[in-house]
Simulated assay, not measured.
Amino acid sequence: MVHCETPSGTLNGLKELARAIKSEGKLLIVDAVSSIGGVEIDVKWGGVDILIGGSQKVLNLPSGLTILAVSDEAWEAWRESITGGFYLNIRLWRDVMEKMEFPYTHSEPLINGLLESLKIIREEGLNNVYMRHRAVAQGVVRAVEAMNLKLVPESEVFSSPTVTAFYVPNGLSDIKVIETARRYGVFIAGSWGGPLKGKVLRIGHMGGYTASLNIMANAS
């Protein structure tokens, strides 16, 4: 499943879905690329077998790093798997992790950047980071509502703290809005795929730069 479904600005109920999936005896793989670092995800309570994160969203780094959390149950399933492969074979990584002897050359700048990003998050405090994202998201939602625009999620309860999606006003083109905003140095994204393409605009508010947005919101 996808935790934060960015094309629609939806944050799926991870605990509820995990509980239902695990009741069926299935493994749960979660794409948390657009939520990890900005939304609370506690894998210790169980239910998530593989959590996949990335460096290029909330963690404020270029793309290129994958962050994985793997449950014991998932490792056992991997042991029993007959799937081949070498470069993307996660079992090779587990065999060498404890010895800190990695099978491939890392990107040292990205690793150092990740350490610095995590240091900044830790200094701010995880709870403060989560609260900041929620506060900025609520500010964006209030602004969208003030312009009489409609959120894509049916309820604000399901709106993601890292991105807000809303429908393009009647009579306007998403491309026209995006191009006009860009002339003023403002980047707004459209959506893609399926029924949302051409009908939805998105505002991303994830990572460290939301700190300045939060300060501006509080000042106003």
Rank of each mutant, 00 (worst) to 15 (best):
G64Y: 01
L68P: 05
W93T: 08
W78A: 11
I82P: 05
N89C: 01
G53Q: 03
N89F: 06
V58F: 08
N60Q: 05
N112G: 08
S63Y: 06
V48G: 01
Y104D: 13
R79D: 14
W45A: 14
S117V: 09
F102Q: 00
T83G: 06
G46L: 08
N89V: 00
S71V: 02
T105W: 13
P62Q: 06
R94F: 05
I50W: 00
W93C: 01
I41M: 09
S71G: 11
D49G: 07
P109L: 05
K44V: 10
I67T: 11
T83S: 05
R79P: 02
D95K: 02
L59E: 02
T105Y: 14
Q56P: 07
I82Q: 12
I52S: 04
W75M: 12
Y87D: 15
S55P: 08
Q56E: 15
E108L: 13
A77K: 00
T66S: 05
S63G: 15
W75F: 07
M97Y: 13
E101H: 14
L118W: 09
L92Q: 09
E116Y: 14
I82E: 15
S71H: 03
G85D: 02
I41G: 07
K99H: 14
I67M: 10
L88A: 15
V96S: 12
H106Y: 14
E73P: 09
E73Q: 12
F102Y: 15
V70D: 00
R94L: 05
G85L: 05
A77G: 10
R94H: 07
D95M: 12
N60S: 13
S63P: 11
G64C: 02
L92S: 13
K44S: 15
E76L: 09
T105I: 15
E108H: 10
R91S: 04
L51G: 04
I50K: 03
L110R: 07
D95L: 11
V70W: 03
G64I: 00
A74T: 01
G53I: 01
R79M: 12
S81R: 11
E108C: 06
G85N: 04
G46S: 07
L118A: 01
N112S: 12
F102R: 02
K44P: 01
L59W: 04
L65R: 01
K44H: 12
A69S: 15
G46I: 06
L115C: 12
R94I: 06
E73L: 10
A77E: 08
E98H: 08
S117D: 10
I41F: 10
L51S: 04
R94N: 11
N112Q: 15
N89R: 03
F86N: 14
D49Y: 04
A77P: 01
E73K: 07
V96D: 06
T105L: 14
L88Y: 11
L114F: 03
N89Y: 02
M97G: 11
